[in-house]
Design a protein around this nucleic acid. Structure first.
Lengths: 397, 397
DNA sequence: TGACTTTTGTTTGAGTCTCGTACTTAATAG
DNA sequence: CTATTAAGTACGAGACTCAAACAAAAGTCA
């Protein structure tokens, strides 16, 4: 418990108090939508006058703008308020993903709108040059007149330390250390963090995707490997070093299945893409999503494929049951190659989950498919770039 | 993400700012020990004058007192400061545990000292009357002149909702609802929370026991059932409903072992007390700890017992490996009946954990035994009672 | 012994911030 | 056209932090 006092970090001065109150207003606008100053005062518990001052400051900074009253005539008596809304015209957060077979970028504005989103296949795994080019291109696209990049985040498939910078282990892209963050910083000209891709995707689903209705979500990404991102109380759970969510090598499923890591019985040896392909006897295509789509298509005509996917779904459900016991999420989102497979995997997974949790009074999470697709990680990374803004640690201009 | 804005809870006024800064000073005193005002200013980053005001307020409330300079003559130049220390004479937190075969109480003062600690065996499982008597007795013992109970917490073996009040499922003690909290409140005359016992014990180990040197700990309690408490960034992870850490029924270990819940393959069917007794062929004694001590004694002469415990240890290690993959704790503490078994289980568990985590770059947690014994849960409950004080949500007088 | 240095803790005045109240503004109801 | 209602602003009071000045209590050194 050595660091708690430090981390609780000095609000300190009265200026810190204003920053904090400002962030409360910002969060309210982001999560509950536009509102008049009076409504904001009720929502946040701040005094009407205080909200007025804060909104004025935000408006001067270009973070919010007044908007017209929503079309319908105000049937209420009294002076109608003028709603303010987060402005998307000035502050941007950029998210990048460096993956094995593609690089991706997403740019979000302060209001949460996607300003730009692109994916490019790459030839060599972990093509940093392609990522930097994409970053430079995206920066050029969005920074026309007066736009400000508040931060950037790079999602990578690998173990990233809690400093949000140091890559410890990322064999798929062959990178380590803090070099990537520095390189991207040089291109973007704003602070850049590096995060695990499953964590980013989880964050994206919690803010923009299939789990926006809860504070406690678990995201499961599936390609060749299996990774998880844990959102608890709206925040990512990172663990002591930053490696939480590395669920691919948990001993679940077929205990004899040989994993790429050399051991047997790893979860991803039962539910990873290669395990599925081996079971159904189909070849790998150019991308995991294309491959999974082909498998799904084959299932329509071949009951053996359906049966194999049922087996996979059962092992998915088993693992989700385990994770549910530990973490008690309200929603579990399946992403990656699971999305094209859809109910083919989801239905048996639900059944297995239900069976495993049946007798205990254990709370049952909802199992859903990712709605964000391949750009989930980049979008979550972009959203993460605003984390300091909405927490009050970073002031807008 | 609906509740984030609400939970980030209004610091609001300048008075809230002072409360927050006061709590920073309190935490610094609690975690880093007594200090002069000047040292506190350096530790907290607050101005010297501010610390002076805050300390004066705390002193007036009876929360801190000036103490003599530590014996050694100050070899430094300049005016020596007078250190202040948390005062144990006024504010108390009380922790209770209602378990199957015993009830326990622990009273902590603000400085973290144990003022009272007692355990009483009970005849009937979940003897609320015995708990209330113990609570009344403890209250009488400690509340002599001017002592103030800031809060009470009851640890129970069962599923407790995130409201820290409602028991959802606690078959061992046959209770449900919020009645227990109300009953204890009536006896103690202060706000009372109810929490899961493993969570309380985990909190205790993180603050006073085997894991005080880290912010990320996992506690495993073993009696007949197996439960876990998760401490991340110094706080308990509760999950969406409050049921996180219910690891007893994860499918780990012998997949054929029949569990008390009716299913097969549950972890506690492999490493729970009854599983051990079945393996070693020894009878259950009056309490889990006595039983485990007898097993440990038998292991000294009977190699078959040792072998059986090695098997248990291996399954413990396997489960810890799984939890480590998910949560990445820095320290894993084994409590309950594992303590008497000591290295007999710990050594093979370490070996299995190492083997399971070997190839990945995964961070390896330290495996330790609980140092707090049977009163861990009660002590953690007492410590929890101070949570609002140290978070700044509750002001001392 | 006595002036000097060094560090602690308090005092003081300035600067911010939130808040409640009063006031202005802009709409509807009759 | 007047009364009513609610939104937004202006203003002064109150609370708090902070830097700088100051007083107090030690050691250091001539």
């Amino acid at each position: 418990m050595t660091t708690t006092a430090d981390r609780a970090a000095s609000p300190g001065s009265t200026e810190g108090l204003r920053r904090r109150n400002t962030s409360i207003v910002l969060r309210s606008l982001r999560q509950l939508g536009p509102a008049t100053r009076a409504e904001l005062a009720k929502r946040t518990g701040l005094a009407k006058a205080t909200v007025g001052v804060i909104v004025a400051g935000l408006e001067a900074a270009g973070a919010v703008t007044e908007i017209e009253r929503s079309g319908s005539v105000a049937a209420v008596r009294g002076r109608p308020g003028t709603p303010v809304s987060l402005s998307g015209h000035r502050f941007l957060g950029i998210g990048l993903e460096l993956n094995v077979d593609y690089v991706a970028v997403a740019v979000l504005d302060l209001s949460g709108q996607t300003r730009l989103s692109a994916t490019r296949p790459v030839a060599a795994p972990g093509d940093v040059t392609a990522l930097l080019e994409l970053a430079a291109w995206a920066r050029g696209q969005v920074s026309g007149n007066g736009e400000i990049l508040v931060g950037g985040t790079v999602a990578v498939p690998g173990l990233v330390r809690g400093d949000n910078r140091t890559i410890d282990w990322a064999p798929n892209i062959g990178l380590s250390g803090a070099g990537l963050a520095e390189d991207v910083e040089a291109v973007l000209g704003c602070p850049v963090a590096v995060l695990n891709d499953a964590n980013c995707a989880a964050y994206a689903e919690a803010h923009h995707g299939a789990a926006t209705d809860t504070d406690h979500a678990l995201y499961l990404t599936g390609t060749v490997g299996i990774g998880a991102g844990i959102v608890d109380r709206g925040d990512l759970i990172r663990g002591a070093v930053g490696f939480a969510g590395e669920v691919g090598h948990m001993p679940i499923g077929d205990s004899t299945a040989l994993c790429g890591c050399g051991r047997r019985g790893c979860w991803e040896a039962s539910i990873g893409l290669y395990a599925v392909l081996a079971k159904v006897g189909l070849p790998e295509l150019s991308t995991p999503l294309a491959t999974a789509a082909a498998v799904a298509a084959a299932a329509a005509s071949d009951p053996r494929v359906t049966a194999a996917l049922e087996e996979v779904g059962r092992d998915v459900g088993l693992g989700v049951a385990m994770l549910t016991s530990v973490l008690d999420p309200a929603v579990v989102v399946l992403g990656g190659y699971f999305v094209p497979l859809g109910e083919l995997v989801l239905a048996p997974a639900r059944a297995a989950l239900d069976a495993r949790l049946a007798s205990a009074a254990q709370h049952r999470p909802e199992l859903r498919l990712s709605t964000l697709g391949i750009e989930a990680a980049a979008m979550g990374a972009a959203e993460q770039s605003f984390a300091d803004v909405f927490s009050g640690d970073l002031e807008l201009v």
